[in-house]
Design a protein around this nucleic acid. Structure first.
Lengths: 228, 228, 228, 228
DNA sequence: TATGAATGAGCTTTCATTCAT
DNA sequence: CATGAATGAAAGCTCATTCAT
């Protein structure tokens, strides 16, 4: 538990040391970074229950005890990995700048961005899947995670309003429902690639398959929002 | 491993005993059924790695050894649970009878069915999520699972052709892409309900939310297929 | 434990039913025989600790419970196998009829018999090895086994006396020591064949190797007893 | 399996640390040594199948997990015990220095050495017996064991040649056959002491019995090699 | 900070034995 | 006599965590 560890010995990870870090903290930062990198791989591949602390230690090249020194427990380490993954995604979303685009282009870009993000960050899909298997209990537990806004809804609302005003979009589109749909189309493809590839005898990881899928999704969404 | 167990002493589960089962086999069947029921709950809630054989034994009210007697190993039991879940879903799909309906109604029914199935069989979503985390390795391993056809594609193809002929559907819709989209919309909603509910501060498990979601999904898909 | 079982439900094995056995006892006898045959193989191959009751049941084609019905416990079954093996060997020894032969021929025959017996009854060697690993505890426990005389010592004594009288043997040969030596030469070769074959890169199970070995042993022993 | 463990996390036992071992490795070495000592007793007394890891842990006074930490598995631990026992015996054999002795003395010394070694290393006999029950499978598996030469054959060959040249030995003695005979006489006596003591009502472990036995064996072998 | 060693609870699985029919 | 089902103790092994330096 995160709480337990904090009450005991958990060192605040030296993520953003103000001023110039000396040699010691630089080495420390490197260790922490290596642990996180290995942990992300391990948790991503095997989930929280399936992940092994020994494996993370070995893969990171760092002594096992250091994991406890820096992160307190396996669960806390998992939480840190999860927080960073969410933070990275939120950051990318916030850098999208859809508002400046023509509404149709904005929607297209959003759909493509969603697919793109999972292609470039496959860990995210699996971390989400794992966290959902755990009923989002770590997401709920983390104050840092709870603070992260899903800013896209507001942006989407703006885009929809603009599109409506410009008479290119139909009226009354619920931004949350639309966002869910866009999220569904992108997430599902990557999260279920293993079973789908097996059941359909196609390799969904191939770029060609991915492009066709994205094109279809864009088509589907744009057809929906467009004023007929 | 299924193979290992079969090579040893695994009893063939008495699924379909020809003729009237006597008292003994009836009790045996009951034990097997109780094990399966408890196993489904456990694997669904915690995944393969997180599931505990002890817990399955306790919840099923059956001696732990019986699990090994009937199913050989934890992995084999998981595989059996997975096979049954898939079989149940395929069976439901095969009973859909979409071909007799007007094309638009058929598509609507298919979308609603997908949502409905997950509402009534929440285990399926989580088993799929878990199996995808394991890269579909058990799906690949099982010959029974590999044989199960995804019959819906053919049906969907027929419906699309009919709709096209009747000039109610647009031309050139890829049935697989459309099926993926329908599957995405339904699966995502349930698989990601925990994180979505947390992040959006809404309880997606509420019937009202579900109905709104289904309506949106139907709208999205029908708008797409309809000839404009 | 044999004692425990006898106090409870152990059926006296129907080994020698006086008069004509009816159908029931014939089937019973067959079951018992099949169990014993499979048990001998299992205990011979794996020793008492390594043997599996399940395996004996499967190999014998008899229900596992029958093993307990007839023999009480795994240990009792082992004891029965051991007793029968010893009895068979003692019987063969008693049928040797060395006394009628010229002393030198008698000794030669004894040596050859010892080798021969292990060739034809390889189980005996391994049962002896196993029982020695257990510090002969079952041999000690069994009254039937304790009663079995090693009649060969008396015979050997007679042969040595005769040889001495006929001036073909040296004087003062200790029959027990000589017997031990003969037993050593034969037993060792078979009991240690696996490690010897491996360490020396020769296959001691080959007839040619065996014949050479027997010839040497005969030579060794006869050279010893002969009057010079 | 040795391989499996090595592929995983088995620590290389710190047998010969170059340089001065610090306190930490000294404690580690002690733990490893205690485990080995207890394991030798357990495997010697009960064989591989009968031995209990719990018992080894308890007798060694070391946490059970340490056994897996240092040796990987029960089988690997057994293999290590076996390797060490063989290595010790081969080392003693190599230190015999028979070549400098008069041929008859050399043979006598060899016979006495064989008996002596088993008297001083009773574990060896039982480990050999156990390994033979397992068809020498660990002996075969171990590359270290396969490399250990049975140097005595060469030495024996030299001695026999010298004896022949000096006209004290008969011609044409096969060194391997002679070695087998010497090995038989010594091994059998100790390996079968439990059953022999029981069957003959004598306690073969008594020094007096042992001395008489050795004298007989020496007599037997020397009579054989001597030129008449 | 860093490391190897150690711990104890708990995990999956095995096995001899017994029950109930 | 015979059978499949059931039992409980214990086996080998794993794993997150902590100790000691």
């Amino acid at each position: 538990m995160a709480n337990k560890a904090i009450l005991k010995t958990r060192k605040e990870p030296t993520t953003t040391a103000s001023g110039a870090p000396d040699q010691r903290s630089r080495r420390s930062e490197q260790s922490q970074h290596q642990i996180l990198a290995a942990a992300e791989v391990e948790f991503t591949n095997k989930g929280l229950a399936g992940a092994r602390v020994d494996e993370i230690a070995e893969q990171s090249g760092v002594n096992k005890q250091m994991i406890y020194y820096y992160y307190g427990s396996k669960e806390d380490l998992y939480l840190t990995v999860l927080e960073r993954a969410y933070a990275g995604m939120r950051k990318s979303e916030s850098e999208l700048n859809l508002k400046g685009l023509p509404p149709l282009d904005a929607i297209r870009k959003l759909v493509e961005f969603k697919f793109d993000y999972y292609i470039k960050n496959p860990a995210m899909v699996r971390l989400l899947a794992g966290e959902n298997m755990l009923n989002a209990q770590y997401l709920k537990k983390s104050s840092r995670l709870r603070e992260m806004q899903v800013s896209l809804i507001d942006v989407l609302q703006s885009v929809l309003s603009a599109g409506e005003k410009q008479k290119v979009f139909r009226k009354g589109i619920d931004p949350v429902q639309l966002y869910f749909s866009i999220a569904s189309l992108s997430y599902f493809y990557f999260a279920n690639a293993p079973t789908l590839s097996t059941a359909f005898g196609r390799n969904l990881a191939e770029p060609k398959e991915q492009k066709a899928r994205i094109a279809h999704a864009v088509d589907l969404i744009l057809t929906y929002v467009r004023k007929t």
